[in-house]
Design a protein around this nucleic acid. Sequence first.
DNA 1: ACATTTCCGTCACATCGTTGTCATACACTG
DNA 2: CAGTGTATGACAACGATGTGACGGAAATGT
Lengths: 228, 228
Amino acid sequence: MNSIVLVVEDEPAIQELVAVNLEHAGYRVWRAASAEDADGMVRDALPDVVLLDWMLPGISGLAYARRLRGAERTRRIPIIMLTARAEERDKVEGLEGGADDYLTKPFSPKELLARIKSVLRRRAPERTDDAVEISGLRLDPETRRVNANGREIALGPTEFRLLHFFMTHPERVHSRAQLLDRVWGDHVFVEERTVDVHIRRLRQALEASGHDRLVETVRSSGYRMRGA
Amino acid sequence: MNSIVLVVEDEPAIQELVAVNLEHAGYRVWRAASAEDADGMVRDALPDVVLLDWMLPGISGLAYARRLRGAERTRRIPIIMLTARAEERDKVEGLEGGADDYLTKPFSPKELLARIKSVLRRRAPERTDDAVEISGLRLDPETRRVNANGREIALGPTEFRLLHFFMTHPERVHSRAQLLDRVWGDHVFVEERTVDVHIRRLRQALEASGHDRLVETVRSSGYRMRGA
DNA sequence: ACATTTCCGTCACATCGTTGTCATACACTG
DNA sequence: CAGTGTATGACAACGATGTGACGGAAATGT
């Protein structure tokens, strides 16, 4: 759903090719020609995926992947490495560096999109367009709609994202801090208790259909969504 | 999870490497460049593991390990020693100093993580996110749920931690003092008798499914959980 | 540009669960 | 049976969460 892909690639032709394909598929693309460039962009806001060329002028792709994985703020961003055929033998080392997946040049647009989608699904399913459903409650990111047994439910933007995150990570306890991080996003300075209020609003919206009982309070830990 | 690793290493490059890898794996890292540094940190709160370089300016790693093992408060913290290849012959002496394991430089991140996990599992399995099950009673830290043969059991925060500790250390008698230390935590001032009350509450919660018989009283010693 | 509506974050207060302690009843040991 | 250790129920204080209200920001409509 309009996810942001940061493409770090020094070869203009390839960068263009990749970017065009991604944009055509509905992604927003940030282009960087080097790790240094990329770093400047990441400082302002976080992309949802990083496509990282292996060979880069200056800081290498591998080194940059390590740096991203090292910093708390960027740790969970999925990384896909672009490598030339000849570099394939280095895969093992690269994986240790923290890449989530590999793409060997040349690659087809279809393959590119598939990898991105798969990597998103694995590490950040809430950034995906797939509809989710739990016991009659259905959320569809594509249409931005929520239905409870067919009847539509109106949600504010934050409640929508909150519910989406819950539904893509059910059965697991999330602390208020984690929720702020992953639902409100990066660089937020908000009281933890604010989460409570939005939980309240979400529950209120789900009350009509009785789905509010899916949102459970786990005292002293956080909140959890029932998985079934 | 979210265990704290105290890294004591004077070589900045290695400290950085280790710290980054650990953080990537989800640990919280405290960095110290010397035993003296480390000691200051330990005074405030206790880490779950100590990674200790063999060669340190000032107090040596070996000496510091001995000190940690000597003090009641820090005695049970697992210690992993970092040694250079050339020092390998000293392994025996090191083990006598009380280290739980060794890592010979250079080492791979994978090996580092494996050792830490193994050492944690051995000395503090309750710091792990793995679900535990004993004769139909199942506790899952990730979802913060307890089931007795499928039926969910509600526990307060303290009872939950208590049960978790018991289940990860079955068949072993724990004194009230030990339980206070490891379930309530360091630096607590609570009557020992309070443990009795929580045992009572835990048993009460487990009564419905008959699992309360798993929690045994060992007169004049403490409590124990049956292992099967 | 202005008016209106929606949404957000925060606060104050109400409510409820949890906690540590005590007093008492009970069980075990020698 | 005396003495020690443990179980249990009650309780008051505390802490965490629920809830309604409010001012202002942001989006939307006119």
